[in-house]
Design a protein around this nucleic acid. Structure first.
Lengths: 145, 145
DNA sequence: AATTAGGTGAGATTCAATATCAATAAGGTT
DNA sequence: AACCTTATTGATATTGAATCTCACCTAATT
């Protein structure tokens, strides 16, 4: 679904922005890792790698990536936004365990279709959706017993 | 689906808590009004009615109501939680216009069922879900043209 | 290499939500 | 009805994510 290689430099330039080390670093960090990362996490990961960057720049860069549809911003309900690269990933939504924080990904074609129908019914132009199934995962359910 | 009259006093007592003016006031305020209200909104509405209450108590009381399944907490993605009484309302999810903030409610039996199927498939015990369709409403879509 | 306008970083600021703790009031007891 | 015990409240401080500010820096063109 997504091309295997993204020319971030070209996209950044096309936006009339400058291609900086920091912007490249944030993008690479998001590529190289698990999904569902928060800004602080990305910030520390880069510092650990001796890359000079500030929190402000992490946030600013993510915003650019999100606007250009390269990164998805997730609000998983724990008070901080999470981010995941859209490249190499197909669309999915999330199951979240409230006990251990485990996150699983799901996709359901039927639900995707029904969302479109509902939007049409209400004369909404759909640009996005948030869909999370919240509960207890297999392990935590067992612990409850 | 929900009983028309809730005995909040009984529920509060059953929890081993005290039935205070402030707790009653927050509950009545949530009953009497539109959905999707934030804490600040409830706080000011009560002050306007010359009810002595603090922000802290508003938050604390809402927490009790949520825990007892009397109120639903909504995260509509704008940085502050919203609340709505569950009584007198049937279950629904939301369509949100990103331009004017308009909120519509929808319910789709098929989606509700599929959510259960997905949870079962992943061995999750479903306790809750978040489902929002985000886009432009009829009016705002027209403005874009 | 010089220029210049966009980008960055350290720290201040914002804002929702929570924590602290002395003062207050609910509600059972006498 | 006054009393007591303890949960509750309110004013304020605090937290934490995210944004803003502005002097300094650097990408990129000439």
């Amino acid at each position: 679904m997504n091309s295997p290689q993204i020319d971030l430099r070209a996209i950044i330039k096309q936006e009339g922005l400058r291609y900086t080390q920091q912007r490249e670093a944030v993008w690479l960090e998001l590529q190289s890792s698990d999904s569902h990362r928060d800004a602080e996490n990305i910030y520390f990961a880069l510092r650990q790698k001796s890359i000079n960057i500030s929190r402000a720049t992490v946030y600013r860069t993510i915003e650019i990536l999100v606007k250009n549809n390269l990164v998805r911003k997730l609000d998983l309900g724990d008070g901080k936004n999470r981010y995941e690269s859209k490249w190499g990933l197909t669309h999915h939504d999330h199951l979240i365990c409230t006990k251990c924080g485990r996150i699983e990904e799901f996709f359901h074609e039927g639900i995707e279709e029904m969302q479109k129908e509902i939007a049409a019914q209400y004369n909404f132009t759909l640009t996005n959706h948030v869909h999370q199934l919240i509960g207890l995962c297999e392990n935590c359910r067992a612990d409850e017993a």
